[in-house]
Design a binder for these strands. Structure first.
Lengths: 300, 300
DNA sequence: TGCCCCGATTAAGCGGAGCTAATCCATGTT
DNA sequence: AACATGGATTAGCTCCGCTTAATCGGGGCA
C-alpha cells in the first residue's frame, strides 16, 4: 500500500499549483507540504513537481496525481455503499472536459444540479476532448464523436445548433448583392481558434459540396472566447458561426441576422464517461443529459 | 483520503482469517494489527471483523476490504505505468472465481504462466461464478453464460467436454442389457453437489428431448471433488459426467468406458473480467485464453 | 544593479501516533 | 483439570511528522 498522506500532498500541490494553497487545502503549514513532497521525491528518486508559477507536475508527478484521484473516486463510491460509516472529508472534485460553446450555453445548468460537487473543467475543442478522456486526464467529456473512447460509455446529447450570423450593418457592407461564393470569399469572418472548422464546414454545405480547394478561405479575425465571438458579430467585425441559444435574442431583435436564413449547422455532441468512475458520475450524467436535452436538438 | 495503514490491516485480517497471519504478512506484531483494527472500528463506530476461526468480515468490513483491493489493483497499474519508480511491496493477489472442473483440467496451466502473481481462487459452479463477479467479490471468473456481467468484458473460452463414464464392472452390473431409460433410472450415478445438473442434462440429450417429469432421477452418490469423482467412477460406485481430459487415459486403457460411446456433453465456458481491473488482468487473460484453447473445444 | 517581496525550503524541537513486549483472558483440547 | 492456542490489553518507548522560525532564491521594479 502506497503512502497516501504523501501522495495527497503531491496531488494538492499539482492541482492547486502552489505549496501554499495545497497547505490550506490540507490544513497544515506550507512547510509540512514541502517536506512531504520532498520525502516522496527522495523515496521515489525522481522529481515530481516542477517548482514555478504555478507549480506543475512532471510526467511521473501527473501520473501519481491521476492515481490519487482515481483512489479518491473509489472512496466516494465506498461512501455511497456504506452510508454514514465514512465521514466525507471534503466535496469530490470532478475533472471534466467541455467545449467552450457547451459551457457557454447549457453545461453550467447541469453543474448547478450538483451543489455538493466541485468541478475542474478542462476547456478544449469538442474534437479534442476525447483525447483527454483517452489519456485518463478527465473522468468524462463532451465530445463530437459518438465512437466511445476505450473504457468509456457514450451517450448522445443532441446537436448544438450554430447559425451563421452577422450584424445588419456588416451584411450591407459585405454582402450588398447577396451571399455568393464571391462575396463569401472576401467578407471577413470570425474564427474561434486554429481548431475551429465550423465556418469552413458551413461554407461547404451552403455552397453545395465543393472540392476542398474550391472552398473559399475568407479573411478572418481570431476570437478565442465564446462571448467575445458574439460581441464581435454584434459589433460588425464579420460573420461567424454562433450557438443558437446565444444569438436567438439578437436575431429576434434584429441586432443580428442570418447570412442565409434557415441554414443552421448542427453539431452533434456526445457525453462520454470513464468506467473507472463507476457510479460516482451517475448523478452528473443524469444532470448533463437533462440539461443537454433542454437546449440541444434531439438526436436521431 | 482514508487511513490506508489501518485499512490494510483490516483487509489482511479478513483475507488471511487471523490476526497472527495478518501480522506476518504486514511484518508487524499481532498486537499492532489488533490495535489498528480496533482503532478503525472505533473511528467508524462499527464492528468490522467477526472474531472467530477463521476471522471473517462483517458486511461493512468486507466492503472496506474490497475497496482496499481495488486500490491495490490501481497501484499495480500505476507500477506498470511508471516502471522502476515504485517498488513492489509484494506480489499482487488476484481473486478469481473458477469452477472445480476447470481448475482440475486446464486453469492451473494458465496460472503457471504468471509466476509473479498470487491467486485467491473462489471455487463455485460455473453457473454461479458470475454472481461473485457481479458483487465485485472477484476480479474475473470462468462462467457458463456469455452474457457479460455489467462492467465486465466477456470472452468465449471454448467448451469443456464431459463424458458419461463408468467402470466396465459397473457397466456389466447395472447395464447388462444396454443403456436404456429403464436401466438409467436404476443405476447409481455420481453427482458433484446440489448445483450439479450435468447428469440430468446428459440424460435429457441421450434419451431424446423428454419433458422434465420424464427424465429419470437415478439414485446418486454426492462427491464434491473432481478427482474423487473420477476415482468414484474407477471404483465402480456408479456413472457420472467426467471432464474428458481427466478420463481420456482411463478410457483408452479400458479402465473406464463411455455409457454411450461418442455421446459427450459440451459445456461452453466464458472468461469474464471486471473492467475496474483495467490492464492489470491483461496478462492473465491472455494466459487463460491460451490455456483454455489448448484443452477446451473451440467455440463457434 | 541593487533592493524587496513572495513563496519555497531548511533547521530545531516538540508531541503524539503506533510500535514492541509482557501479561491477561476466553475457548477448546488432551 | 491443566494446558495450549489465539486474540485483547496495557505500559513504555521510539521515531515520525508536525509547527515555528529562520533562511534561501528568483522575479519585478526603481
Amino acid at each position: 500500500m502506497l503512502d497516501y498522506p504523501l501522495l495527497a500532498a503531491l496531488a494538492a500541490v499539482i492541482r492547486t499549483g502552489s505549496f501554499e494553497r495545497a497547505a490550506q487545502q490540507l490544513h497544515v503549514t506550507p512547510s509540512a507540504v514541502s517536506q512531504r513532497v520532498k520525502l516522496l521525491e527522495e523515496r521515489l528518486g525522481s522529481v515530481l513537481v516542477v517548482r514555478g508559477q504555478p507549480c506543475t507536475g512532471t510526467a511521473a508527478g501527473q501520473r501519481l496525481c491521476q492515481h490519487v484521484e482515481q483512489v479518491a473516486l473509489l472512496e466516494s463510491e465506498l461512501r455511497g455503499a456504506l452510508p454514514g460509516l465514512i465521514p466525507a472529508e471534503g466535496p469530490t472534485t470532478l475533472r471534466i472536459a467541455v467545449n467552450a460553446d457547451s459551457l457557454a450555453t447549457w453545461f453550467v445548468a447541469a453543474m448547478a444540479e450538483l451543489p455538493d460537487c466541485l468541478f475542474d473543467l478542462v476547456l478544449d475543442d469538442q474534437d479534442h476532448s476525447a483525447e483527454w478522456l483517452r489519456k485518463g486526464e478527465v473522468l468524462a467529456a463532451v465530445t463530437a464523436s459518438a465512437a466511445p473512447v476505450p473504457g468509456c460509455n457514450s451517450h448522445p446529447l443532441g446537436a448544438l445548433r450554430y447559425r451563421a450570423t452577422a450584424s445588419p450593418d456588416c451584411m450591407r457592407r459585405h454582402f450588398p448583392d447577396g451571399v455568393t461564393a464571391d462575396s463569401l470569399s472576401r467578407a471577413p469572418c470570425l474564427t474561434f481558434n486554429r481548431k475551429d472548422r465550423l465556418q469552413a464546414q458551413w461554407l461547404r454545405t451552403v455552397l453545395g459540396d465543393l472540392e476542398p480547394a474550391q472552398v473559399p478561405t475568407p479573411p478572418t479575425h481570431w476570437l478565442p472566447s465564446t462571448h467575445a465571438f458574439v460581441d464581435g458579430a454584434l459589433a460588425g467585425l464579420g460573420w461567424g458561426m454562433n450557438p443558437d441559444p446565444l444569438v436567438a435574442d439578437h436575431l429576434a431583435a434584429g441586432r443580428l441576422v442570418e447570412l442565409v436564413p434557415g441554414r443552421p449547422l448542427d453539431v452533434p455532441l456526445h457525453w462520454q464517461q470513464s468506467r473507472i468512475a463507476g457510479t460516482a458520475l451517475a448523478e452528473l450524467s443524469g444532470a448533463v443529459l437533462r440539461a443537454g436535452r433542454r437546449v440541444l436538438h434531439g438526436p436521431a
